[in-house]
């Protein structure tokens, strides 16, 4: 069938589809789910399932909750192996992979939260994962999955919608978002410093987008999480925002931090994950696009 015909039939179908949007406060932000499908009551049930998936991630990976998987591991995994939920295992495996590929730039044991609680004496390589979902720490370390869990939650919510028969939609957890289905969505990227005039719009189809930003020395943005280079323990300085598009949101989420810290060095990693990055500088009206093996610099 020609593309023209399929587009036309999709447009026709779309006119009879219903669309529902809901928002709930989760993961410390507002999670918005938009779902499109034939039957409204099915959509409602699907959205409930998607929010339930986000809740589960929130419950498992909340650093501040001693009963979460992360809380339990931080308390006991240095003493004895701790059994975790398959999703926690999945996120830990992905985190290990990113740490390995970035030579430790991304490290779940190095975050402002873990540093505030205890001086770091170990690293990601002290986390031992067994195949039967047991986790053991070789040294008394603390882990914080905050840099990756939000993207993972978006992916699980998307999965829940798709498996419930939703034809298309968006899951947006405070700017970390994933688009699925035949429709494309436009997202605007803005630097957390509202004053920066540089802005870019990105059109997404069946893809995820995540943004991380630093705005040092700006009192109004003191609540932004600082990013720490796992190799050196240094906090990323300056005023910068990195947006990454990737096939899934966990990858996009993790890679924003890699791009913030590694800049051009992150290009091979981006290529490996079929990702693209856009860097916005808060101090000048410049933005960079990192793609494949090239860096383009633009003035706005």
């Amino acid at each position: 069938m020609s593309r023209k015909v399929s587009v036309a039939s999709w447009q026709l179908m779309k006119s009879v589809l219903s669309k529902i949007r809901r928002a709930r406060p989760l993961l410390g932000t507002f999670v918005e789910i938009t779902a499109q499908g034939a039957d409204e009551s099915c959509l409602r049930a699907a959205i409930d399932k998607a929010f339930a998936a986000v809740c589960t991630v929130h419950r498992l990976m909340n650093f501040h909750d001693p009963k979460s998987d992360v809380g339990r591991m931080n308390e006991k995994a240095a003493k004895r192996p701790i059994r975790v939920h398959p999703w926690t295992q999945c996120v830990l495996e992905a985190a290990q992979g990113f740490s390995d590929k970035t030579n430790g730039v991304l490290d779940v044991t190095v975050s402002p939260l873990t540093r505030a609680s205890r001086s770091g004496c170990g690293s990601w390589s002290d986390i031992v994962l067994s195949k039967d979902k047991y986790v053991f720490f070789l040294r008394p370390i603390l882990i914080d999955l905050g840099g990756i869990a939000k993207g993972f939650a978006v992916d699980r919510a998307t999965e829940a919608l798709v498996s419930a028969g939703v034809t298309g939609g968006v899951v947006n957890a405070g700017g970390d978002l994933r688009v699925f289905g035949p429709d494309s969505y436009t997202a605007d990227i803005r630097h957390p410093l509202d004053l920066a005039p540089s802005r870019r719009a990105i059109t997404l189809q069946d893809r995820a987008l995540a943004t991380s930003a630093v705005a040092n020395g700006q009192a109004d943005f003191a609540n932004l999480t600082p990013f720490v280079d796992g190799r050196t323990g240094r906090v990323v300085s300056g005023s910068l925002s990195a947006s990454v598009t990737a096939p899934d949101c966990m990858t996009a989420d993790a890679l924003t931090k890699a791009v913030l810290i590694m800049r051009d060095e992150a290009i091979p990693l981006l290529r490996k994950h079929q990702a693209r990055a856009i860097l916005l500088s808060g101090n000048s009206a410049e933005w960079e696009s990192l793609r494949g093996n090239e860096t383009r610099r633009y003035k706005t």
Binding site: T29, F30, E32, V170, R190, T211, S243
Partner: peptide, 21 residues
């Protein structure tokens, strides 16, 4: 009008839900 219905979505300005909590 609403987000994605003419007005674009925004990435990079995470809003805290602390006040709702």
């Amino acid at each position: 009008f609403a987000l994605n219905d003419g007005i674009t979505n925004i990435s990079g300005a995470t809003l805290s839900s602390r006040h709702v909590t």
